[in-house]
Amino acid sequence: MSEQIQRIPVEITVNGTCYKREVEPRMLLVEFIREEINLTGTHIGCDTSYCGACTVILDGNAVKSCTLFAVQADGGEILTVEGLEKEGELHPLQQAFSTEHGLQCGYCTPGMLMSSLVLLAEKPEPEDKDIRKCLSGNLCRCTGYQNIINAVQTAAKDLREA
């Protein structure tokens, strides 16, 4: 390893905007999102790949952004919780988490939303067990999950009827 710190140019599109930066190879995607482009809606919970609070959507897949280097996302398209709202209107999933009390402290919520969004894109009419399976990598210390399942079902219905 040379003494000089390597910097790698990356181009990463986040919520429709392309960001060009030069990053250290060891920079995690979550740090890129939170510290390079200042989108702090994506949370770091465990930082050990378990809790899913850092979940974002990379090229259509939910991924744990604490378990990915920013350089690995070079050229990729990312959606974070900040990209859900459109023209001041909450996304139906966000709205449903609110009305169904799918959150308490809200720490896990950005990750829950991003995982659920991928599910609803694939399965517009999910069964509860599909939702549980989809959210099996997202931990919540507050809600006991039931209201989260209800929220995703409500959002699924709203999206189908929209």
């Binding site: 899913g52 979940t55 897949n61 378990t67 990598g137």
Partner: peptide, 9 residues
């Protein structure tokens, strides 16, 4: 194996 996020990568 693990959860959807880990399986995707």
């Amino acid at each position: 194996i693990a959860d959807p996020q880990v399986r995707a990568r």
